[in-house]
Write a protein that binds this DNA or RNA. Structure first.
Length: 411
RNA sequence: CGGGGUAUGGCCCAGUCCGGUUAAGGCGCCUGCUUUGGGAGCAGGAGACCGCAAGUUCGAAUCUUGCUACCCCGACCA
């Protein structure tokens, strides 16, 4: 894409009412737009990043057999009454409204109820199980205080996967697969190194749930990390009994601030009880379906990546999620650059060409701010030296590369 | 929901305490000329119901009251 066509522009100053690093940079670079506190829209560059993140998640979910669907954000009171979660005493972050005829409705903050109710239409026999389904859905949470930019919003996209199994053993197998898939997702998102499988409180049906916590200053949780073993314990369950149970030595644990990037949760029969979601087994007995839920917020992941990788000059995107792989910059040499731009595009390389008539310094500053992994500069100086200058966003200096070798260099 | 802070062109801000010509400056934007390897220079120009609503006053960005929004700390985060 030619940058002159991009309707967003970079800003030199962040709005003063944004304090969090992720929101400051994402707004300055034109990735997101703040509609109100805790409510952010995604602009072309930001939406490209979001789509890349969602695609990675989608591939890993499909890989473990997840079937993508899309439930509704708008929910009726009736469904939620079955688990008592319509009650404002029990759930205090509802956005509730009503239809013209007075029917009470709400904007869902999660979808266990909706999907369990839905599955009553499709699950009847042991032959129907196991399976899992997921969606990317806009969730609404009427938080009393939004904070940390895009990391804790009142409206946000969430990937939520739900599993349906016949037995605990069958559930445990899938749970393990989901856990592995999450590890792969965070690796692919470029934050695997700092993301720890974390033991947290489990609820009624299992001793622990698992969170994926990324060590990060903007986080809201405190975890105790065993870096050797690569696992952590959430402060909420941090006690001698738990440490003994997990065979962790207090002396090997480091206290860290962390952001919850994802969580996986065994639900047991909590929801199948409430909705009477049963199947008939081989012995003609009615059995409750065993469920699990697995959440991961792509926008929060985007915020975490920003917080973790950005430097003083701007955003730094891992290749897998970058809005464009290459930021092409010309200093004069329009025709030659047009040629290279076409070659890159023909080779399938996603490239943002800063074709604007601006001084070099301004283009460099924008390229740093936007944070594409590779910067390619075409100038009379580079051409005389034998090609174009190729520089990684994370490197200080670039190198001259022959135009014919450029594509293989950035593969 | 408790406590603290802020609100002035698209963005950063001065001015408010102590009321008084036309609300200053920077970024960005428009025009022209010059400029081109780290946010260019000169000249000219456009853009503001000073968060909203009342009130005090001859006169309000400035004082008073109410409201709203935003940020921070805490509580909450099923």
């Amino acid at each position: 894409m030619k940058q002159s066509q991009l309707f967003t522009k970079t800003q030199k100053f962040a709005p003063k009412d944004e304090v969090s690093k992720n929101a400051q940079l994402l707004i300055r670079a034109g990735f997101v737009h703040k509609e109100m506190a805790g409510v952010y829209g995604f602009l072309p560059l930001g939406w490209r990043v979001m789509n890349n993140i969602m695609q990675i998640i989608r591939e890993e979910m499909n890989d473990i057999g997840g079937q993508e669907l899309k439930l509704t954000a708008l929910q009726s009171k009736e469904v939620w009454s079955k688990t008592n979660r319509w009650s404002d005493e029990i759930v205090d972050n509802w956005f509730k409204s009503e239809l013209k005829n007075g029917t009470k409705v709400g904007l869902a903050f999660t979808h266990e109820e909706a999907i369990t109710g839905l599955m009553k239409s499709f699950v009847a026999s042991y032959k129907d199980l196991p399976f899992s389904a997921y969606q990317f859905q806009t969730k609404f949470r009427n938080e009393s205080r939004a904070k940390s930019g895009i990391m804790r919003g009142r409206e946000f996209i969430m990937k939520d996967l739900y599993s349906f199994s016949r037995t605990q053993e069958e559930h445990d197998i899938f749970y393990g697969k989901a856990k592995d898939a999450y590890v792969r997702i965070f690796d692919r998102l470029g934050i695997g190194e700092e993301t720890y499988l974390t033991f947290a409180s489990g609820g009624t049906f299992s001793k622990y749930s698992h969170e994926f916590q990324t060590v990060c200053d903007a986080g809201e949780d405190i975890i105790y990390v065993d870096k050797e073993k690569g696992i952590a314990v959430n402060e909420e369950v941090y006690n001698d009994e738990v440490l003994a149970d997990l065979e962790l030595d207090k002396n090997n644990l480091v206290k860290e601030k962390a952001a919850e990037a994802g969580n996986i949760f065994s639900l047991g029969t909590k929801f199948s009880d409430a909705f009477d979601l049963t199947y008939r087994d081989e012995n003609e007995q009615e059995q409750k379906v065993i469920m699990g839920s697995y959440g991961l917020g792509p926008a929060r992941a985007m915020g975490i990546i920003t917080e973790l990788l950005a430097d003083e000059n701007g955003l730094v995107w891992p290749e897998n999620v970058a809005p464009f792989k290459v930021h092409l910059i010309n200093i004069g040499e329009d025709e030659k650059t047009e040629e290279i731009y076409s070659q890159l595009q023909d080779a399938g390389v996603e490239v943002l060409w800063d074709d604007r008539d601006m001084r070099p310094g301004a283009k460099f500053a924008d390229a740093d701010l936007i944070g594409c992994p590779y910067r390619v500069v075409v100038s009379s100086r580079s051409l005389e030296a034998g090609g174009v200058e190729l520089k990684k966003r994370t490197d200080k200096d670039g190198q001259i590369v022959n135009v014919d070798k450029l594509i293989e260099q950035i593969k």
